[in-house]
Amino acid sequence: MSSSESARIEVIPDRRTAGWDLLWSELSVLFRRRRTWAMLAAVALIPILLAIAVRLSTSTLAAGEGPPFLSRVTQNGLFVGFTSMVVAIPLFLPLTIGVVAGDTIAGEAGQGTLRYLLVAPAGRVRLLLVKYAGAAAFCLAAALILTVAGLLIGAALFPVGPVTLLSGDVISVPEALLRSLLVAAYVSLSLLGLSAIGLFISTLTDVPVGAMAATVVVSVVAQILDILPQLAWLHPWLFSHYWLGFADLLRQPLDWASFGTNAVVQLCYIVIFGALAYSRFATKNIQS
């Protein structure tokens, strides 16, 4: 876009509301897409399949066998949500985030709709912000749906009662529900860094599938780096390092330490890759 064009766009009076309109249309397009619904349904299937498998199996698990909390599911349905969160975090949630975040800019470019979006009086910065907000909304939706599906199927198939925390203390059902929501908030926060990386990768290419795959690869590579002891100095700065830290919300007294550290790390990634995405997108020669 030449400088004269952008100058003309800036003088259009309803710029202030243009951003909100764009956000609203982005969200409604994202959550009306069949692909988004399919991914959210698949996310909801994780706790459902897990709970049915545990319900149908006759062998009782010894304490500590299988994924964390799995042996407690039969005694308390509220643990279904926590177990499926542990199962979904390493691969499945990053996969769906990769699809949504990788598609943000590259998808529009691939379909040839990007230049029409930029004709609207919003500008490139707002378009980036709106696209990122859409990806963040998907993170929250995925984590919430996983939690709610886990709670519902757990309550349907297993007894529900006071929850034993990792510290051995017992909390009431309402407090356990509150902690479940906190875990969902923690998990969606954990995925924001990866979303920013996906947004940046998406500005690099016009092929959405490439951006999606690259984002998923980045999340897998980060998790591999996280288990190499030779890179211990790097671990606290990997965006995936605190992904399982939501366990700190299941301790008594509640340990906010990893929530705070996680937020700082994710913010670093958002700021860095947000800046990279801005520079790349603002200077990009958009022809499609």
């Binding site: 860095i272 947000g274 990279l276 801005y278 520079s279």
Partner: peptide, 19 residues
Amino acid sequence: NIVKWLPAIVVPAVVVAGV
């Protein structure tokens, strides 16, 4: 364009320095 590329250099540098 150089001005627009500045954030891509300055922001990561500031974050790393802060860390």
